[in-house]
Design a binder for these strands. Structure first.
Lengths: 340, 340
DNA sequence: TTCCTTGACGAAAACGTTTTCGAAAATTTT
DNA sequence: AAAATTTTCGAAAACGTTTTCGTCAAGGAA
């Protein structure tokens, strides 16, 4: 039951390979009887054209590469889901890789994918890459003439299509929302302080403060690293100053903050309000449920995939690069006070 | 800056393709000077051997296919993470697909992946496939001589390597644990009642009941479908009989059950205990936090990938198929009473 | 009959790579 | 100087497919 090739079928019928190829493709150039005979045989023996050979010939693999910093994060899982869905619908497979927030791994993976196995690439920069701001590997990839779409974690230095979240506005909106509910002293905790999205959210936060003529205090910006003890940091923060709201830059962290506050018997939202980024599964179920910023991950995935595939399928046409900005939505729940 | 081929380099230096190939592969057959000259040029122009051409020649793509029923589920995300990690470590890329619990989509995807683009396949059967028990597409795949490893959702009718969770034992253990904490009337809610794993867990549940000489009441087994109103079903259940424990067959459902009980002002675990399957992010953060069964998803992914790659790399050797059974662990939290 | 058209099929190139084998040239050995 | 060996490189096959073009025969038209 070895894999059947055109050559095998050709030998079986004593005809040429071209005849078989045309027959299985139902080409009228071949007489009806021969065609039927060969098609029947091919079907019975489950002949399938070798996609690798086809890829080599057509210079198109019908697969797109996806590199995300991590998959153990609801936002990226959602985006991934959206990409997979639309890619499949448009006849593409996806080959998925994780950079694990690591620069060397990203370089390595991008290199691999530039060797002809994908027709295009979707990428969200790793945290380390954004911190280093070293994007030579991306430039090389672009030089290889393979379409690339960046999403969420992008870089100004890279010229290509991009899909980003309106993080500046989101940072501004959440801060303003908290101020409007009567909060005065708002802290911000972030693990991704070096990433483009983290910085934009902080800028939005600062803009909102400035608008209300509230001085920005950098001590209220908690940069937490991988193995930091968040509880300790929060304890210090609360000792430093009276806080009445905390913005957490991802969902897990929002949940962690809530957990810590509850363990300290601090009432949420009466004493401290919480808003988190990424509206995942957690936020609905904890109590009090968390007010969150939704980034519409699935939609971003769909949009990104569509832009990439359009680019792949109109490779010769000159289409200027676009940057799509996706607005966020605030999902109001119980961890914030109501607007008065 | 078009993609460079061996031919391009050969022309540039006026040598043959074979010379260039050997030179870039640092073959001593080529004189040191020529080798250096060509390697320098290749590096400068970022030559990378075309992987598609290589795959065709070597009949090996160094990629493995993964088909899971859904990625929006923490267990499968975990498994996926484990697979990706070990596959990468062993030099393989993964091409990932979702069956969306749909039989036709699974058939289609398995078909695609049998056309030579993967060296092996990792698969967890869709719910619909297990309900239909139609596995012809899998048989066809196996006939094509491509290594296959099934995990979690498997079928007795398919002969191949398998990695499964000890769901029978897990069902038994959780039930027994609840009985030991003093529960007498245990209900079970499941969305995957037709899957192999669902059935095993129910069997384990029944075994534990039988051991304690408690009659099994099929009304306590809630089969919930995609769009059912869980709250209504639970209300009926509570009206039907006094319940003091609920086993939920996945994490979301456990959280939903908790949510519903809380909204009915039923104390957990004083009045009703809850145990859920899949120890994800949710369970830790809800309150009371949920006692869960951990299936060690990441480990399963690693194990599965290793078995598959071993099979790929020793294709000629005859190694009998194995079925690895991974034990579960019970993570005790606040949604169950303490053992007395 | 002769010419032209049409139908049915095959030969060969092309995609990019590795590898085996052969051959020429350079070097060493006798 | 002749013979033997080694060094250095190229030709060609192979992987499986599509597609262009050519060929040959049959059939119809003149």
């Amino acid at each position: 039951m070895k894999k059947l090739t055109l050559n095998d079928i050709a030998k079986h019928f004593g005809v040429s390979i071209s005849t078989v190829s045309k027959a299985v493709n139902d080409n009228a150039e071949i007489s009806k009887e021969v065609r039927d005979k060969i098609q029947k045989y091919a079907k019975e023996h489950r002949y399938r054209p070798n996609r690798v050979a086809l890829s080599l010939l057509k210079k198109s693999t019908k697969t797109i590469g996806v590199i995300v910093p991590t998959i153990l994060n609801y936002f990226f899982t959602q985006v991934f889901f959206g990409i997979e869905k639309t890619a499949n619908a448009r006849g593409y497979n996806i080959i998925s890789c994780t950079s694990d927030e690591s620069y060397p791994k990203e370089v390595h993976t991008v290199g691999l994918l530039s060797a002809g196995i994908v027709d295009g690439l979707i990428l969200s920069l790793s945290h380390e890459t954004q911190a280093k701001a070293n994007i030579e590997h991306i430039s090389n990839f672009i030089d290889a003439q393979i379409p690339l779409v960046l999403f969420d974690r992008v870089s100004d230095k890279i010229e290509c299509d991009k899909v980003i979240v309106d993080d500046l506005q989101a940072g501004y909106n959440t801060t303003k929302y908290l101020l409007d509910t009567g909060c005065k002293s708002i802290a911000l905790v972030s693990e991704i302080y070096n990433s483009s999205v983290g910085k934009l959210r902080v800028s939005g936060y600062q803009n909102a403060l400035k608008e209300r003529k509230i001085a920005y205090d950098s001590k209220l910006l908690l940069k937490v690293k991988k193995n930091d003890d968040l509880e300790l940091l929060i304890t210090f923060l609360l000792d430093y100053k009276k806080i009445d709201a905390i913005i957490a830059l991802d969902e897990m962290m929002a949940a962690d903050v809530l957990y810590i506050l509850k363990s300290k018997n601090i009432k949420v939202p009466e004493e401290i309000s919480i808003i988190g980024f990424t509206n995942g599964r957690l936020s609905k179920y904890v109590s009090p449920s968390l007010t969150m910023v939704s980034q519409h991950g699935k939609y971003i995935g769909e949009l990104t995939a569509n832009i990439l595939i359009d680019r792949i399928e109109n490779k010769d046409d000159f289409i200027p690069y676009t940057t799509k900005i996706v607005k966020t939505s605030l999902i109001e729940r119980e961890s914030t006070r109501s607007l008065t």
